[in-house]
């Protein structure tokens, strides 16, 4: 059964976490602008500031193309901020008067206090009181950490109705599980962060780490650790909407994100049943091993049939 339409639900695209080639990165966003069913697009280097130098000059064209296509662009900040250069970049970004910024670190919250902003999934918002603090400081939207279960999502949404905050959840793609100051990609190649030679650009969706008995387990992406499995909450979009989630985030991958966004769009809008949508998703992303355990309060790698 297809879901009843709800006008407020928006489909969003998280920032590209991987070190794609600048051409691929630009073309990806151009295609998202021209062809995708996504409403809001988060853009920005979230994982490693060393990569930024390849992309900085491409931002104006990408933002312009997305905006011209009717997408709302939100700039995402770096998730690990401690180097002085990154602090300066952060301060500068947060000072841009016209940009809407998503904070992925408390450093960004420091700069964004008192003006409208978004709070990203790398900031720990787990409960009502933290949500209250965010809302008082100007947060219009909070994207919850991937590991929170359904009852936490529901309770935060209840509180968000009174604070006027929208709640966003990641609904597709590999889940961010950890961050570090150390670059695990460089380490895998016998290098360090400073001399990394950008080996993180070798894999489009991150470097798979297998256990000693050959089971794929985790994915290394620079100083970030992702899940091997890909999150799909496609089967519970209706439940999430009833709970009060109004924004559904897709994590970018090298698969056909236009097609993925089309599937999510139709399910979110009530034009396609969840189970039929998931069948389409399986066909669209055959390389993905899907999981949804966090939502059910179970191990994040596990799958529960909705």
């Amino acid at each position: 059964m297809a879901l009843a339409p709800a006008e407020a639900a928006r489909l969003t695209l998280g920032p590209v976490p991987f070190n794609w080639s600048p051409d691929d990165w630009r073309d990806f966003y151009f295609r998202i602008a021209d062809e995708s069913a996504i409403d809001d697009v988060y853009v920005g280097e979230v994982v490693c500031s060393k990569r930024s130098l390849f992309f900085d000059e491409l931002y104006p064209a990408v933002v312009q193309r997305l905006t011209a296509a009717g997408k709302r662009v939100i700039l995402s900040t770096l998730a690990m901020v401690f180097l002085s250069g990154d602090r300066a970049t952060m301060a500068q970004l947060c000072a841009s008067p016209d940009a809407l910024i998503e904070a992925n670190d408390v450093s960004a919250l420091f700069h964004l206090r008192g003006r409208p902003h978004h709070v990203g999934p790398f900031v720990n918002v787990y409960n009502e009181r933290t949500l209250d603090v965010m809302a008082r400081a100007g947060a219009e939207n909070v994207c919850l950490p991937a590991e929170v279960p359904a009852d936490v999502i529901e309770r935060v949404c209840q509180r968000a109705r009174s604070t006027g905050t929208t709640i966003e959840v990641q609904s597709f793609g590999r889940m961010s599980l950890a961050l570090s100051a150390r670059c695990y990609h460089a380490r895998a190649h016998g290098k360090t962060r400073d001399g990394c030679q950008f080996v993180c650009g070798r894999e489009q969706d991150g470097m798979v780490i297998n256990t000693l008995d050959g089971a794929p387990f985790l994915v290394v992406n620079g100083n970030q650790v992702l899940s091997f499995t890909w999150l799909s909450l496609l089967g519970v979009i209706g439940a999430l909407k009833r709970a009060g989630v109004t924004r559904f985030r897709l994590a970018p991958h090298s698969c056909d994100m236009v097609q993925v966004s089309s599937i999510f769009r139709r399910v979110v809008d009530g034009d396609l049943a969840e189970d039929e949508g998931f069948a389409e998703l399986l066909a669209a992303v055959p390389e993905a091993d899907f999981a949804n355990g966090f939502y059910y309060g179970r191990p994040g790698h596990s799958w529960t049939s909705p």
Partner: peptide
């Protein structure tokens, strides 16, 4: 701890028990 403290869900991913929560 190798991972940034307070920002690690590895245990949660493998076991369902959350370090943070």
């Amino acid at each position: 701890g190798m991972m940034a403290e307070g920002r690690c869900s590895l245990t949660s991913y493998a076991t369902g028990t959350s370090t943070n929560m």
